[in-house]
Simulated assay, not measured.
Amino acid sequence: MSQARNNWTVKSILCILVFMGALPTTAKGRLTRQRIVTAALQVVAENGASGASLDEVGARAPASRSQLYHYFDDKNDLLRAVAEATNETVLDAQEELFAGLGTWAGFERWADALVELQRQRGGVGGCPIANLLGQIGERDDDIRGVLGSGFDRWESRIREGLTAMAKSGELQPETDVTWLAGSTLASLQGGLVLAQARRDPEALRRALDGALALIGAYRVR
């Protein structure tokens, strides 16, 4: 795995778009690469990873076949870029909510916002990271690792919030925040799968209510 993919925590669009090979040295090159990744995200969302063709990506970008191979070694290389961009899209969308996870009220707001999003979508879509993992994670270890890092970052933000609650005295000092964060993310992902399968947003509501109840068991009354 390249050094660029190891540095996914840097909040810069330039670093987000570095997955394999060298970073384009010109603004035009960086914009072209970004445009290709954006087009690939759309094509994969509509057709799935296996049904996403380079020709369709190039037509939508628009970019020539030579430009595609200038910025990406092959289709798998482009899909790694899609995996990185998917992580960023999902996590950046929650950034404001993550910032409030240092309080019980912040956890409730985070859970309510995720449920409301599923209600607006009618349970359609699920978790984009998990969806992509199911499509290509088992056949490409590099892409699986990229998507796994997205879950690691997600869990880390939850853990940071729980740690802040423990430090402020809102949670019992002996609370195992690492275990609790992992359990919370697992509940979230399970709820998203059931909501997607059943087209029932309340499946996520029940899963997150269970996660909140578990966190609540460690609150200082």
Rank of each mutant, 00 (worst) to 15 (best):
N6L: 15
R144M: 05
V146P: 01
E116P: 00
N76V: 10
I158Q: 05
R153P: 00
A4D: 13
R159M: 11
L214V: 03
G191T: 03
Q42F: 04
R157K: 15
E174Q: 15
A105S: 15
S53R: 11
L132G: 10
V37Y: 03
K75P: 02
G191N: 02
S53D: 04
R80V: 03
E46W: 03
T9Q: 15
G48T: 08
A85K: 09
D73E: 05
R30D: 10
G102I: 04
L133P: 00
N47S: 13
I36N: 01
Q120N: 12
A39Q: 00
W154R: 11
E174D: 13
N6H: 08
E160L: 14
L185V: 09
S66I: 01
I158A: 08
F72Y: 12
L180G: 06
G123S: 05
P24L: 05
R219H: 07
G190W: 02
G134W: 02
I36W: 01
E170K: 02
S53F: 10
A45P: 00
R159A: 15
A130G: 07
R198Y: 12
G100I: 00
A85S: 13
E95H: 03
D74V: 09
C15M: 07
L180F: 11
V124Q: 06
A207T: 02
E170Y: 01
L188I: 04
N47C: 13
G102S: 04
P173S: 14
R144N: 06
Q120A: 05
A164T: 13
T163Q: 07
L23W: 00
N76M: 13
D112N: 12
T163P: 00
L114C: 03
L132F: 06
N76T: 14
